[in-house]
Amino acid sequence: MKKPNTQPALHKVIMVGSGGVGKSALTLQFMYDEFVEDYEPTKADSYRKRVVLDGEEVQIDILDTAGQEDYAAIRDNYFRSGEGFLCVFSITEDDSFQATQEFRDQILRVKNDENIPFLLVGNKSDLDEKRKVSVFESCSRAATWGVPYVETSAKTRSNVDKVFYDLMREIRSRKIEDNKPGNSRGKDKSKRKKLKCVIL
């Protein structure tokens, strides 16, 4: 029999966000260090990678979901399996930013957990000249949710690793906390990292 402890910890990350905001591009950049120019809508793809997180070998399981509206009804099943969420929007498209609220709501409903590891990601930061969503706007939304906000660029690979690693750290600390017996939910709210706004 295989011993479970020999298997590195598995963190399940789910990419959510409207269609065309660059979820797959971020994932592929993280996975294979390549930027795919061609756009082909994703249905649901799963990736797995071994990475070293703060000196510890872990596995990341990335579920890249479909952003298209017609899949909204069946997203619940994806979200249930997630331990952490990267909620991506394009800073060049206000609709995608507005849609993040809907994703957030759905995730909270499915997971029934206010403190689920969650990052708000503004992608396509390389296209700053086409920016439609201001940093202030994004930061304040992230602040109301109590989550960090990070701007990334799948094309230049800026902050790509950061969002995945930050999320994994949150998932990991969350798991450690959950395993501690008798800790209250109210406590970890106060312990939560200070919200920061990373724009680069």
């Binding site: 649901a44 793809d45 799963s46 990736y47 579920l63 069946i74 099943n77």
Partner: peptide, 19 residues
Amino acid sequence: FAAVNVRDMGSVKTAFKLL
């Protein structure tokens, strides 16, 4: 349930996931 395409990775090829 939800079906998810699994990108080929190491020994796991032509696979899909069922959540």
